[in-house]
């Protein structure tokens, strides 16, 4: 079992080491995920229903559905 896990880890490490174009692509993926989760998600995507209990959420939505903005 341990040998298998080592072999799988080696497979990935080896694969990443031998990448050429893949390094650029991984850089793009990581920058993109950083922008999405560390910047956009934190600063621009507040959850209006976050931190509310189920009952509070239901009350919040029923207000929105029954009262004109």
């Amino acid at each position: 079992m341990k040998d298998k896990l080592v072999a799988i880890a080696g497979f990935y490490i080896d694969g990443f080491r031998q990448m050429r174009l893949g390094r650029t692509l991984w850089a793009i993926i990581l920058i993109k995920l950083f922008i999405m989760f560390a910047i956009l998600r934190l600063f621009f995507f507040p959850d209006p229903l976050g931190g509310k209990s189920d009952a509070e959420r239901a009350d919040f939505i029923i207000e929105n559905l029954t009262e004109k903005p």
Binding site: W26, I28, M36, L40, F45, P48, N64, L65
Partner: peptide
Amino acid sequence: GINFAIGIATGLILEFEFGTNWSNYSH
């Protein structure tokens, strides 16, 4: 692979927007 890597996770923004911009809908 190029297309997969660049495109991966762009759909996440749509899911973020459901929560933020369309919360009445999402609930």
